[in-house]
């Protein structure tokens, strides 16, 4: 008789772990629910840290190497915390043709951060995306989840400045 593998205890009493656990339970703790689980960790915590990767690996009975492999393979998973605000510049073809490069340069110049980086005061992260599907409004950026179309560097930077 084989016993089901023991589930690890929650890493802390942070309530957000319960959300993560719920996702795994809903999928019967199956290994193929790994991506769903990582999505729910990122939704809850904003990024994937070592504690969460170890917890997910143990819960789903997967080698940590595999979990780390999946987490680093997909662009959407972040292994570092993001700033309080995020500015995602779309670098799809339509946005590129219409000047996404200028938007990135504008933010780089003003804040001194490159794509993938966060300002020293943790206020803003600059990210890029492979097409957010708003090509009709190119060039587009996504600021804190809201898509802003037809942007230029001199409209984008003031928008970012207004964020608290």
């Amino acid at each position: 008789m084989t016993l089901p593998p023991a589930r690890p205890p929650l890493p802390s009493d942070d309530k957000r772990w319960k959300l993560v656990n719920a996702t795994m339970r809903r999928n019967g703790y199956a290994g193929h629910a790994l991506i769903e689980t990582l999505h729910s960790v990122q939704d809850a915590f904003g990024y994937l840290d070592e504690t969460s990767l170890r917890f997910v690996a143990a819960s789903l009975d997967l080698p940590l190497s595999k979990v780390f492999g999946v987490a680093t393979f997909y662009h959407i998973f972040m292994l570092k915390p993001k700033g309080r605000h995020t500015c995602v510049v779309c670098t799809g073809t339509a946005c590129y043709i219409k000047g996404a490069g200028g938007l990135i340069e504008g933010v780089q110049e003003h804040y001194g951060i490159d794509p993938g980086e966060t300002t020293a005061d943790d206020r803003l992260s600059l990210l890029t995306a492979r097409c957010v599907g708003a090509c009709g409004l190119a060039p587009a950026v996504v600021v804190d989840g809201e898509v802003l179309g037809k942007q230029a560097a001199d409209t984008l930077v003031p928008t970012l400045e207004e964020l608290a």
Partner: peptide, 22 residues
């Protein structure tokens, strides 16, 4: 849900992703 990988539009890669793999 995908997780931001262009190659997952390729059918065998897509299936690997549904199986929870890279």
């Amino acid at each position: 849900l995908g997780a931001g990988a262009f190659v997952c539009g390729e059918e065998t890669a897509l299936m690997a992703s549904i199986e929870g793999l890279r």
